[in-house]
Design a protein around this nucleic acid. Structure first.
Lengths: 177, 177
DNA sequence: ACCTGAACACCGTTCAAGT
DNA sequence: ACCTGAACACCGTTCAAGT
């Protein structure tokens, strides 16, 4: 893939603005996501943030769904599965919480599969497939709830539950018991 | 509420087409959902299915989010929580599976809260709040996975997992163990 | 390889006005 | 109470054409 070559052998515009790579597009999309939320993370806005026409994105990515999957992969990229299963899942939660609507992006993308399968496999090796699936559904689902709840509370639509982290930990313990 | 009065005291058009009620709008929306899926369940399409202009919907409902919450409430309306907790949750799953993208509608609506809280409360009375939350996240999440997986398989994008019902039951047993 | 410009077929929502 | 007609500010995606 061209975008994995650090210094392109093909000519790049030198004056003013560099040509974008796939990674630039994903980074731009994650920037828009974190600043405005998934609702406003449109192809047109991502293009705008890169200083490019919307149609230019389709040179890098087949459609929006694919871009969302790549964003999800990046969000969970640094999480590693260890023998400390509970610790790994707390790490996964933290990674999703670190970006606005992160859990929702991972949820919709993992539905259409692409990168969470890797995570699921690594987990399944340690606890079996049934438990791995159950744990992932719970972690992503509870974290999504957490983010939506906090957003609603931040906007004053709801009273803030002060113990969402505790709720998460206790539910996880129930499954792992 | 006017729409709960079986025979309206207020004048209705008699010739040709009856005026719509809130329940008609929700029914129409569920019809569109079941036929075309959530992706194509737009306000404009729902309006079209009722033989009405898009703007007319806003007389019955404040926005699309509200309509989705009412749809979710209807999808789970006939599920009753009994002392047979596992049975109740199988019932919930069946109700969501009965309509196209049913679990996704319930998931997005329960995120923004409206009717699943009733379910959660009834469940919490029997098993405690932490377990109730954990169970609901799992049931809705797994069912959503099931529907998306089956859709992808129906379109030939993926090999059909023949044991999704088994997977669900085993995961549920793991949490309830 | 990467991007522009223009177009196509859509969205959700608002609002004055009709009956 | 329920609806129309018209408008506003957007969408995702395609495609010929430029460099």
């Amino acid at each position: 893939m061209w975008h994995t070559i650090p210094f392109g052998v093909h000519a790049h515009p030198v004056g003013g603005s560099m040509a974008n790579t796939l990674d630039d597009v994903v980074s731009g999309a994650l920037g828009v996501l974190d600043e405005f939320g998934l609702e406003f993370c449109s192809m047109r806005r991502v293009a705008g943030s890169l200083g490019v026409q919307p149609s230019a994105l389709y040179h890098h990515v087949a459609n929006k769904q694919t871009l969302l999957s790549l964003m999800a992969a990046r969000i969970v990229a640094d999480v590693e599965v260890s023998d400390d299963v509970a610790g790994s899942l707390h790490q996964l939660r933290a990674a999703m919480l670190a970006v606005r609507d992160g859990a929702e992006v991972v949820a919709t993308a993992s539905a259409f599969r692409l990168e969470v399968s890797t995570f699921e496999e690594a987990l399944a090796e340690r606890v079996g497939l049934d438990l791995a699936r159950t744990l992932l559904i719970y972690v992503v689902g509870h974290t999504q709830s957490t983010q939506l709840h906090r957003q609603a509370a931040a906007v004053g639509a709801i009273a803030l539950d002060p113990d969402l982290d505790g709720s998460f930990a206790r539910g996880l313990a129930l499954i792992l018991r």
